[in-house]
């Protein structure tokens, strides 16, 4: 083995003969590496450049856990291929640690002209070919529903849409899977989940009606041990699905946001009973559009007083909600 006398300029004196070893600069504590990677710019630069955290994770295996923790803390999915990559990557990492369990914030973004929107995930068919919820799950969507329980640490789920697809939203099975199998879920902000309307195949939307079976004796999707505190549905166009989910919550929510839905095609919706249910601990309520006219009395009756949200619609005075 080779030996040589080295002079360490940091100490200013000659050291005794030592083995020639690579300098261990890269052997930083994982905690320190995390702090370093937190400072890296969040760029989307492609190629072999360390501007991206993904590239930093390829430097060596010792760096990978720290970068992965950073990468997987906040995940944004914008396409079906990205969703599949997320599931495949998580499964591939299983022997060491399931990456899905490290996700804290999950965002699903639906953009215009995206194949996963038009093609299959995660929408039920409305109008033509509508069926009951269990039968409308397409392969990727069904796979995702089975995968969702791996998100054991997710704290917040945000679903956003853009352009003309603002009415599309995750199906009840997808939303229900998050609610029922993610014990740390604290915030849920999604468009109102879709639910197939009852009616005959080929029936126009305006003729479809909400079936009473949707208010059936379904088990709660969120148990009392859950942490869900903020529930927000916006731009959804299926009121029954929203109410179904709200009614099936056992854990009382603190903040409730129901916005959008200016037009419900004149359909009548049976109001479910919320007494003693998920609305018993409401502190903040934000309602507008259709919800304001048909729902505003319920929170007030269940647990007065409620605080008016500053973002309440200007056309509908919110004073009535304050008792």
């Amino acid at each position: 083995m080779s030996r040589r006398v080295t002079r360490n300029p940091r100490r200013g004196r000659a050291d005794s003969p030592t083995r020639t070893l690579p300098k261990p600069s890269w052997r930083l504590l994982t905690e320190l590496l995390r702090k370093i990677f937190k400072e890296l710019p969040d760029s989307r630069t492609k190629g072999l450049c360390c501007a991206d955290l993904c590239s930093a994770s390829l430097v060596c295996r010792a760096w990978e856990p720290a970068t992965s923790a950073q990468i997987w803390t906040h995940v944004v999915i914008r396409s079906a291929s990205a969703l599949r990559a997320l599931m495949d990557c998580s499964r591939a990492s299983e022997p060491r640690a399931d990456r899905a369990a490290t996700v804290r914030i999950l965002e699903l973004e639906f953009l215009d002209n995206d194949e996963w929107l038009v093609g299959e995930f995660p929408f039920d068919n409305i109008g033509e070919n509508h069926q009951d919820i269990g039968e409308t799950l397409l392969p990727l969507q069904a796979e995702f529903v089975r995968f969702i329980p791996r998100f054991t640490g997710v704290r917040a789920l945000f679903v956003s849409t853009g352009g003309d697809v603002k009415f599309f939203c995750p199906s009840v099975p997808v939303t229900g899977a998050f609610l029922s199998s993610c014990p740390s879920l604290d915030v849920l902000q999604i468009p109102g989940p879709t639910l197939t309307l009852s009616g005959e195949p080929g029936m126009a939307r305006s003729e479809a009606k909400l079936g009473p079976r949707h208010w059936g004796d379904r088990p709660p999707v969120v148990g009392p041990e859950a942490m869900l505190a903020e529930l927000a549905f916006y731009e959804g166009f299926n009121v029954s699905a929203v109410y179904l989910l709200m009614r099936s919550l056992e854990q009382p929510v603190v903040e409730l946001v129901l916005t959008g839905l200016d037009d419900w095609w004149g359909q009548e919706v049976d109001m479910p009973s919320f007494e003693g249910g998920p609305l018993s601990k409401l502190v903040v309520v934000e309602l507008d559009g259709w919800y304001y006219w048909h729902f505003n009395a319920i929170p007030m009756r269940i647990r007065p007083p409620c605080i008016a949200s500053p973002s309440a619609p200007s056309t509908n005075p919110i004073d009535g909600v304050q008792s």
């Binding site: 600069s25 370093i36 430097v59 060596c60």
Partner: peptide, 22 residues
């Protein structure tokens, strides 16, 4: 940590390995 991040940020992976002696 910010200085180290600035040092490694604009460099390709091979150069990062060289700098850190990885």
């Amino acid at each position: 940590t910010k200085s180290i991040a600035n040092t490694i940020d604009p460099k390709p992976i091979a150069e990062i390995r060289e700098i850190f002696n990885v």
